[in-house]
């Protein structure tokens, strides 16, 4: 059986976790809240929705959103599929296989993510232009 002090400590820890989590996600929760507000009510900040509306969602849905979502879906599904296909055998070998210098190989893979993507945009753009891959999504 838990003592009273211990139970109190547990309650305190749970409350602390909830408060910290809500505060951490607050910008996102507030974004969600604001999405139901009328445009005039967005400022100043307030946790109360005066005139609940779905108008903002209506506007977004009228803007070819399905087309953009389709692009995103194509890119993310293909990327993840290729990553899994190529990555899973290698990670299995690195962990369970009898490979000499498996750590070096792992470090080499990880080190390629150290370079910020922005540094690669121009060369990647040029390579894609040479290969004729620009604007080629979904063709």
């Amino acid at each position: 059986m838990m003592s009273r002090a211990r139970r109190g400590g547990r309650r305190f820890r749970i409350a602390l976790a909830w408060i910290a989590a809500v505060l951490w996600a607050f910008p996102l929760l507030y974004m969600l809240l604001t999405s139901f507000k009328a445009e005039a009510d967005a400022v100043p900040p307030s946790l109360w929705i005066l005139h609940p509306t779905l108008q903002n969602y209506r506007i977004v849905l009228q803007q070819q959103i399905l087309h953009y979502l389709e692009d995103s879906a194509i890119i993310s599904v293909t990327t993840v599929a290729i990553c899994i296909l190529v990555g899973v055998p290698t990670s299995h070998i690195i962990v369970f296989g009898r490979l000499k210098r498996a750590d070096n190989l792992l470090f080499w893979f990880l080190s390629t993510t150290l370079l910020p993507p922005v540094a690669m945009t121009i060369p990647v753009f040029l390579l894609f232009r040479v290969l004729g891959l620009l604007d080629a999504l979904g063709e």
Binding site: T90, I93, G97, L99
Partner: peptide, 13 residues
């Protein structure tokens, strides 16, 4: 897996 097979499997990545 033996060493050769291991190397072969890491090759694509």
């Amino acid at each position: 897996l033996n060493r050769r097979q291991s190397r072969l499997l890491t090759l694509p990545a």
